[in-house]
Nucleic acid binder design. Structure first.
Ligand SMILES: NC(=O)c1ccc[n+]([C@@H]2O[C@H](COP(=O)([O-])OP(=O)(O)OC[C@H]3O[C@@H](n4cnc5c(N)ncnc54)[C@H](O)[C@@H]3O)[C@@H](O)[C@H]2O)c1
Ligand SMILES: NC(=O)c1ccc[n+]([C@@H]2O[C@H](COP(=O)([O-])OP(=O)(O)OC[C@H]3O[C@@H](n4cnc5c(N)ncnc54)[C@H](O)[C@@H]3O)[C@@H](O)[C@H]2O)c1
Lengths: 189, 189
DNA sequence: CAGTGCTTGTGTTCACATTCACAAGCACCA
DNA sequence: TGGTGCTTGTGAATGTGAACACAAGCACTG
């Protein structure tokens, strides 16, 4: 979240940012931000604030986002296609290098420059330097597909299907349930 | 989250569920679930658990999700199209009834049964019974578009653009930043 | 070079959410 | 009908994260 906000400031040409500025932009209180940063060492300048470049570098280091990371996309449906063409992953250094699907109609076709491969040819992703996967298959197939990913050596899964998936604890899953997020709104409205 | 899990159980024909079962499924502890439910009154049966139908009804009531709610979709790009055709909103009783875009190439075309209208014709959504909107426009246009939605009487916005938007405090915004969620994974991997 | 204004970093306080532990209560059975 | 086995609902304990308040420190100014 900080990375996104600070990257935005950099694009606008800002060199320094104070915890107060960030707090206003992110709708947080400023001590929150200073505490968060200070957990990872003191890299601000009293009286001035934090240097934007330094901050981006440190946060990328902390989150292990330095350099580029390869990711696989599973499921070339409507959402999968949107994700495959989404440039926003670049900010965090992600690149979708392989796409898989089960449907013969889709296998062999291309999304952008990337060919859709058969899920049967998933193989050992780890050996190809892929440790992350985005799961955009129907909920019914999510658990089964996740298990194949784990076999393939994947260490982190972004699950777009509206269900929980169970994996060995060395594997991290992050689930996004878009409809559920919308479901939160009426309560407050 | 509970609603999704319990709806899943109902589809499987289960009549009752205990806090322990739910806890296992959602990777939580069981007292958490009992506390959460008890804040809204006691509607379980000791020795048995919670009746699935009752639970779904109560949670829908609590979250103000009883009945159907109309929503507008702004931005008929790749993501917008996927969302417009996504059946998963139905679980929470949402229906996308209007779609808007700015591009002359898209206006007049249909996604499913819904015609894409010009954003100029947004008008008063409230009067048409629309209190929720899904924002799937480029980040640069998000703030400006959100303001038009607020003018149109929208009370809740699901923002898919990777940026914060500022709205009057009577309006609730829920932002989903998909790339950011993926960005969380490497830290743990 | 002392004074002013601003911002960081952090010990302490505070608030809240999670977890524990157990009494109360229902169902089933002998 | 009394006993057994579960499960709920909830006060109390615990843990965790947010907010506060302020000393320490940098920059700029006259
Ligand atoms: N469309 C949306 O806007 C949206 C929003 C939120 C969540 N989701 C979720 O994302 C997932 C995908 O949604 P979608 O709209 O793209 O669906 P879709 O039906 O358009 O696409 C699903 C794709 O997955 C492929 N597939 C099915 N089983 C597979 C398997 N075992 N291995 C590999 N590929 C397989 C299908 O061939 C298809 O191409 C679903 O779980 C859906 O609930 C979608
Ligand atoms: N594609 C994805 O998978 C993905 C993932 C995460 C987030 N997002 C975000 O969702 C948003 C949409 O992404 P997309 O991939 O669909 O982009 P897109 O470029 O395919 O579509 C954007 C659409 O918005 C329309 N638009 C532009 N300005 C508008 C305005 N002022 N009013 C109404 N409509 C307007 C455009 O005409 C276009 O049809 C972006 O903010 C993007 O960052 C997309």
């Amino acid at each position: 979240m900080y990375l996104r906000a600070i990257s935005f400031l950099r694009r606008q040409g800002q060199d320094y940012v104070s915890s107060r500025d960030l707090a206003d932009q992110l709708h947080l209180k400023s001590p929150q931000i200073r505490k968060d940063f200070s957990y990872f060492g003191a890299f601000g300048v009293k009286g001035i604030g934090y240097r934007v470049d330094t901050l981006i570098g440190r946060i990328r280091e902390i989150l292990k986002l330095s350099g580029t990371q390869k990711a696989a996309l599973i499921g070339a449906g409507r959402l999968g296609k949107a994700l495959a063409l989404y440039p926003g992953f670049g900010l965090y250094g992600f690149e979708i290098v392989e796409i898989f699907d089960v449907s013969p109609k889709k296998i062999g076709k291309k999304i952008g420059n990337t060919k859709i491969q058969s899920i049967k040819h998933l193989g050992n992703l780890e050996k190809r330097g892929i440790r992350l996967a985005i799961l955009a298959v129907p909920a019914e197939a999510a658990q089964e597909t996740a298990e194949r990913l784990v076999e393939g050596g994947v260490r982190g899964i972004l699950n777009m299907a509206p269900c929980y998936i169970t994996v060995p604890k060395r594997v991290r899953v992050q689930t996004i349930d878009i409809a559920m997020e919308l479901g939160i709104l009426p309560y407050y409205v």
